[in-house]
């Protein structure tokens, strides 16, 4: 169980998400016909209901965190992430963004090879030689399976093209 403070913040966050959904997302990003005969049939009906349910649940989480028994000191799970851990997570997230944009440019096979080696390095770089070997073999094997057996057109990129 998380600490009282963390649980309260989570509850408030859920409420904020619900308000954002009801006040901004549903009115602006759902197109509803001008006249809907029955309110239940409107494309907005279901998301609105879900938004209100989320608001109530966020309130419940907040109330429970504020009024319920808190876990004894030192026994609550911590949400704290140390500096190096946080840095690795940020780099990993950035890597996913780079992979997404690199696939059309470099092709899926080369991007996957680089992503594999980068992940090995990010987690300490042990067994790097074996890692590089697997990084080359695995994407190539998957490329041949999907493109030659399954008939999927794997993106090749603008530079080196595979047969």
């Amino acid at each position: 169980m998380l600490s009282r403070r963390d649980e309260t913040l989570i509850g408030l966050g859920i409420m904020a998400l619900a308000v954002f959904l009801l006040a901004y997302m549903v009115p602006n990003w759902i197109v509803a016909p001008r006249s809907v005969r029955l309110i239940f049939l409107s494309p907005m009906f279901w998301p609105n209901i879900l938004g209100w349910v989320l608001l109530v649940l966020g309130g419940l989480l907040t109330l429970r965190a504020l009024l319920g028994t808190a876990p004894p000191e030192g026994q609550a799970d911590s949400l704290a992430i140390s500096g190096p851990e946080g840095l690795r997570l940020v780099v990993m997230t950035a890597m996913l963004v780079v992979i997404f944009f690199a696939i059309p440019v470099l092709g899926m096979v080369w991007t996957s090879m680089l992503a594999f080696v980068a992940t090995v390095l990010l987690t300490g770089g042990k067994r790097l030689v074996l890692g590089v070997l697997v990084a080359v073999v695995l994407p190539l094997a998957l490329y041949f399976f999907f493109s030659k057996v399954a008939g999927v057109s794997i993106p090749q990129g603008d530079f080196v093209r595979l047969p």
Partner: peptide, 19 residues
């Protein structure tokens, strides 16, 4: 080793979802 297993999972995910 986990440090080779999880990058393999990542590559499998990318190919699999694209397909």
């Amino acid at each position: 080793p986990p440090n080779l297993l999880f990058p393999s999972v990542l590559v499998l995910c990318i190919f699999g979802v694209y397909a």
